[in-house]
């Protein structure tokens, strides 16, 4: 029950997964299965929230110096949940407006700012790559610099534009294509191993 049934379930639903990919006539089954997966996954959120709560409760219990911030997380979480749920049942109410404002002026700018930090991270990564002295790193860097210039080139530098187009069209496409084929083989092999029960680490592994 503890080990064999999960392996059997993985096999059984794995076969269903293969079948719905192959048989158009079973589209109804496929839609049902996709709904099932969404429904099943939804309940895991309860486990997730309990884990997050536990993580912050431990900090609070241990009187960690950042205790205040754990409270911030809790308050924000409850606040957002409550105004969201009330807003769901009363779409015209004030709380729904507040929920939308929280989304637009808290979540969106935080998201956008984190994303914008990439400008700095990518620069520092490029800088470090600059210092590497192997021939491979040099090739990487050279291609990177040419393409960077190529994307904004004008006037006498327009030649970089053509070189960039060539680099993207020939060597980059070739490399990415082969890498993708390898990934495809990896995905298929891993999936087969799981369906056949050869790979069972996801169940905690062991026998």
């Amino acid at each position: 029950m503890k080990r064999t049934l999960p392996l059997f379930l993985a096999f059984f639903f794995g076969i269903i997964g293969i079948i719905v990919q192959m048989v158009p006539a079973l589209k109804g089954l496929m839609d049902t299965m996709l709904d099932w997966m969404a429904i099943i996954a939804a309940f895991a959120l309860a486990v997730g929230i309990s884990s997050l709560t536990r993580h912050h409760m431990t900090k609070i219990r241990r009187k960690h110096k950042d205790i205040f911030f754990s409270y911030v997380t809790f308050i924000a979480m409850f606040f957002m949940t409550i105004i969201g749920l009330v807003g769901y049942f009363r779409p015209e109410g004030a709380l729904q407006g507040l929920f939308e404002n929280m989304y637009n002026y808290v979540r969106v700018p935080l998201d956008a700012s984190m994303f914008a930090l990439l400008a700095f991270y990518i620069t520092s990564a490029a800088y470090r790559a600059f210092r590497a002295r192997t021939w491979l790193a040099t090739v990487l860097l050279l291609a990177g610099v040419i393409v960077m210039i190529g994307r904004v080139a004008f006037g006498p530098f327009i030649i970089f534009n053509d070189i960039t187009a060539w680099i993207m069209k020939v060597p980059t496409t070739a490399a990415m294509r082969a890498v993708n084929v390898g990934i495809g083989l990896g995905i298929v092999a891993t999936s087969i191993k799981i369906v056949l029960g050869i790979e069972r680490s996801y169940l905690g592994g062991g026998e």
Binding site: I49, S51, G205
Partner: peptide, 10 residues
Amino acid sequence: PVVLTVAQDV
């Protein structure tokens, strides 16, 4: 969350 449950077991 689903990945969490699996990772916990692993």
